[in-house]
């Protein structure tokens, strides 16, 4: 080691060290590479992060919805982060239908109670969990599928009155967004 230090301390000819022990030159290479890697990473990060949602986009990521104008049995679509959110003011029959399902038979087992805060209000993201189409069922004239909820026209997925996947290729239930009741008829989504 002492010898290789002498060699390394000179003008730095590329002499092979006699043993396998690391030399000062190895240390310098590694230190330089580490500093260089750190520099590249710190330059790369801003260039990557700029493609993430910007501050003005994030500022739009919560919305408040007034529910007082929605009649029983009426379904309303609102836009949240550019996506449709289905708000369903469910009838007692629809709630009953959703509760009557045997959870063990579901492909994505969830009770109706786990999917709502207030039973008469179902709030789900209106995007089919198969490949992202918007299912039909918001208008009374729409095909609501075999389970009275929603039906996706793209590849034939059926959802029930709790927004759960029941038939067709959809693997998961319609997602429930984060939301809370600010007042009995006012919710904030996001």
């Amino acid at each position: 080691m002492a010898e290789s230090v002498q060699v390394g301390g000179g003008v730095g000819r590329d002499e092979k060290p006699k043993s396998d022990e690391p030399t000062r030159r190895d240390f310098l290479y590694l230190a330089t590479a580490a500093v260089g890697a750190f520099g590249v990473a710190s330059v790369a990060w801003p260039l990557i992060d700029q493609m993430n949602p910007a501050a003005d986009v994030l500022a739009l990521s919560t919305i408040e919805v007034d529910l007082s104008q929605i009649e029983v049995g009426q379904r309303v679509t609102v836009s949240w982060r550019g996506n449709p959110v289905f708000i369903d003011h469910r009838t007692p029959e629809q709630i009953e239908e959703a509760r009557a399902v045997d959870v063990a038979e579901l492909r994505d087992p969830q009770t109706d109670a786990e999917r709502v805060i207030e039973p008469e209000w179902l709030v789900v993201v209106g995007i089919c969990t198969h490949l992202g189409c918007v299912p039909l069922g918001q208008r009374p004239s729409d095909d609501r599928g075999a389970f009275g909820g929603w039906f996706c026209p793209c590849h034939g997925s059926h959802y029930d009155t709790s927004g759960r996947a029941r038939r067709g290729p959809a693997p998961l239930n319609l997602a429930v967004p984060d939301y809370e009741f600010l007042e009995p008829t006012l919710i904030r989504i996001g």
Binding site: P46, L47, D49, Q50, N52, A54, A55, D56, V57
Partner: peptide
Amino acid sequence: ERIMRDVNYGWLI
């Protein structure tokens, strides 16, 4: 101005 204020690291770029 949006690049300067809202885009992540937009001011830097």
